[in-house]
């Protein structure tokens, strides 16, 4: 059972810091962008279905437009032809944005060590959580989402303006 925040029982107010409240709100209402390319996309459809419902964790509203999404879930093989498209979708997302790489092909190229497959999406965009598997079970995908939620809850509000983050983006050639 998840615990309710302190202000919901008792006296109705709580003393906390701003970034904890914002982190809590963000974490439980992540709007994912399912960038589903291949077999992992079907496992994602099963995760969104009623048996392993992802909507319980706040990700009920899928956004196919990057401008309105928080979390880019890359599921499936990314070929070299698709890499510029992926990068453009990532650039169109507004801060704060997180990336979840689902499946062996998105993490590292998977079983396709060929001339046409990008060996991992972290060659083109920064990734926050990797979910291995071929395809990963829905429980694993949910575990990945929970880890993203932990990252989101504990993120400092100044992170996106910090030098470390700017350096990370510069490594990928993103301004």
């Amino acid at each position: 059972m998840a615990e309710a925040p302190a202000s919901l029982d008792g006296l109705g107010y709580t003393l906390t810091s701003y970034d904890k409240v914002v982190g809590l709100a963000r974490a439980h209402s992540l709007w994912p962008l399912p960038f589903a390319t291949s077999c992992c996309g079907i496992e994602f459809m099963a995760t969104m279905g009623s048996n392993y419902d992802l909507g319980r964790f706040g990700s009920e509203r899928l956004s196919f437009s990057p401008r309105q999404a928080d979390l880019l879930m890359v599921m499936g093989t990314i070929a070299k032809k698709m890499a510029p498209v992926l990068r453009q979708v990532y650039l169109q997302m507004a801060e704060p944005r997180w990336v979840l790489s689902v499946g062996a092909c998105a993490c590292s190229g998977g079983i396709f060590d060929t001339y046409s497959v990008l060996q991992g999406i972290d060659q083109v965009i920064p990734v926050d959580v990797y979910v291995p598997g071929c395809p990963p079970r829905p429980e694993q995908i949910i575990q990945g989402i929970l880890q993203i939620q932990e990252l989101v809850k504990n993120e400092s509000l100044m992170r996106r303006k910090s030098e470390v983050y700017k350096e990370l983006l510069n490594k990928y050639g993103i301004e």
Binding site: K80, K81, S108, D113, T114, Y115, S116, Q119, G120
Partner: peptide, 26 residues
């Protein structure tokens, strides 16, 4: 149709390798 338009060789010919020779992580 399937490969990138700017590819300058024909990949299924026997003399070309399967793997991308420029990858660093494997």
């Amino acid at each position: 149709i399937l490969n990138m338009d700017d590819m300058n060789y024909f990949p299924m010919l026997k003399q070309y390798p399967l793997e991308d020779q420029l990858r660093e992580d494997k």
